[in-house]
Design a protein around this nucleic acid. Structure first.
Lengths: 339, 339
DNA sequence: TTAAATAGCACAATCGTTTGTGCTTATACT
DNA sequence: AGTATAAGCACAAACGATTGTGCTATTTAA
């Protein structure tokens, strides 16, 4: 139990004042004309006993902790864990640490933990919010700490966000299906209080309209992003007398549910039914068949988020518009051409 | 910019001393015989202005931050993100926060960030270490803060760990293959400086020996946990004049690489070659074919780790043996029976 | 030779808490 | 009436760092 070496212990051992030691260690020796001899001795002592500053003391004094709160609805979702990875990478490169919270898609935990983050004096918050309500996030802006939403966001809020081009994603996926002759295209969506879900749906609908296809509302189903949701509604869709020829799944998890249901029904993709999944994951190219997806760029999203945060921390008046990151259609073999 | 409400501001407004306010807020009013009137006024003021304590000040004073450092080699790996989820859940339930670092499988970053965690005065560390060296972790024990390894660990260290029953995992997977008539079973492994890799290999070898099968060393290949590694070595295995009839892949990512290579070679699983993957993931049952896997229980691993940490924090003398969590063979359709 | 300038530090306040000790005033006891 | 006892607080130190100001001794200038 080597006794902690602090400025105080250094000062005592060297018979200096803690102020002097602090200045030396912060490279302010010249500025305060500390003698070279003193500088040397402090430096050596620090190296030898490998002193390193107590960040919480520093944080208290500076009201600045060099930490960023990261609020994620489900860190086990590969989309989010990928994003988290890039956020952590960018943050640590700038000497910031990440305080991670998994909100478990639960608004109450989210509220409570946002509070906790503030009590811990994080310098900023990056969040993929869970639900509808965001009063707890508004409070943050009042306290004047930077915040940005990633992936999910709120339209009726002035808090900036970075997200994928969800509208275009919905549009090109649907259009791709239409160009391959599909007319009855099911949309298996998530919770529609979530903006990206609305956007993807808008894109879907625009493509349908443009093509002059009958917009059958009964083909638009689903209530959340999970596997079960995808499974359950696909089952229902497949019972329809006038069954869809293609399904557009709004998340990788929903896509997994679709796969299972289709399989259980003894059907095969793409022969019996085509499928496009929103969100590309490493494993989808190994599925049977490899699935055509809309690929989001979580790296860019993460990097942009911390870039914004960092700028905002340095300059309170720094402002940007929210950012929409382009998506890409990755064609594989889950879409068949009709007629 | 509502001015921060602190003990000081409360004390000033109520014309009390900060000490008194602190005691009231910490429920020590009786003990220090603070009058009911004072208690009421402080409580009300606190509610109305929703005071909540500055955790960094608290942390400085108490040398206790209620935070746990979580060091993960690759948070985007679904196995780790799942584990992280459970760790965060258990920790936050106990009012601890998680400081997350993605070491990027890089020992240097790991070292540096362990240091950072200590500077930030985390109360404990949970780590899935990256590599061979662990001097930076030994230092931790000297500082007397609790630490536990998860998944990966070091045998020649007294630091406790929770991990899967890797030996048995390797054993039953290989045995399952043998029972299905396989004699030439390839082992596609990760970096062998990692203990779990050694264990899985030992299990594999025991099964081979027990069965009295020729142990062909040329069937044991691979150097790390990534997709490319799985791809590259599978290609090589498939070039062999006397090709293996089965592959046992040591990680989900290696498994993906195997899949790709097998596909590129125009072969199919399980007809041309059988496959078992160590580590079950949600998507594997949707692969073509669904893959037989060895399932690890990341939930238990995560929960046990924080349980240990918490006990250790409360009681310095608390000790447990390292824990080996049972694994399970999940049979699907990637193993064919020979003869 | 004396005043001014500079070198080289020490001192103390501060950030927001917690906690040991001490100081009044009021009540109780004899 | 005089002294314990207790009630109800205030004061101040401490955690580890940063930073504005002040103090002393030496050097320089006049």
């Amino acid at each position: 139990m080597a006794k902690k070496v602090t400025l105080k212990t250094i000062a005592a051992d060297l018979k200096l004042s803690v102020g002097t030691v602090s200045r030396v260690l912060n490279g302010k020796a010249k500025e305060f004309r500390i003698s070279d001899k003193t500088v040397k001795s402090v430096m050596n002592y620090a190296k030898d006993n490998n002193y390193s500053p107590n960040m919480v003391a520093k944080g208290l004094r500076a009201s600045r902790t060099f930490s960023i709160g990261l609020m994620i609805p489900d860190i086990a979702n590969p989309f989010f864990s990928m994003m988290a990875k890039h956020i952590e990478k960018a943050a640590s490169a700038a000497n910031y640490s990440i305080l991670l919270v998994d909100a478990e898609e639960n608004v109450e935990k989210e509220k409570q933990q946002v509070r906790n983050m503030l009590n811990r004096q994080v310098d900023a918050i990056i969040a993929a919010p869970v639900g509808i309500s965001f009063d707890h996030f508004k409070e943050i802006t009042k306290i004047k700490i930077p915040i940005i939403f990633v992936d999910r966001y709120f339209n009726n809020s002035s808090i900036p966000y970075v997200t994928s081009d969800n509208f275009n994603g919905g549009y090109i996926a649907t259009k791709h299906l239409i160009e391959n002759g599909h007319q009855r295209i099911a949309l298996l969506k998530g919770d529609e209080t979530i903006e990206p879900v609305k956007e993807r749906r808008r894109g879907y609908q625009k493509a349908i309209e443009e093509a002059g296809i009958f917009a059958d509302e009964s083909l638009i189903v689903g209530v959340e992003f999970g596997v079960e949701n995808g499974f359950k509604y696909t089952k229902e869709l497949l019972q329809l007398k006038n069954r869809p020829t293609a399904i557009f799944a709004m998340s990788n998890l929903i896509g997994l549910g679709v796969l299972q249901a289709v399989k259980e029904e003894g059907l095969t993709i793409p022969n019996d039914i085509s499928l496009i999944i929103f969100d590309d994951q490493p494993y989808v190219s190994y599925l049977n068949p490899p699935i055509t997806t809309v690929k989001q760029n979580s790296e860019i999203i993460g990097e942009y988020a911390v870039e914004y945060i960092l700028n905002r921390i340095e300059d309170e008046s720094y402002e940007t518009d929210s950012k929409i990151i382009p998506i890409k259609l990755i064609e594989r073999n889950s879409v068949c051409t009709i007629r």
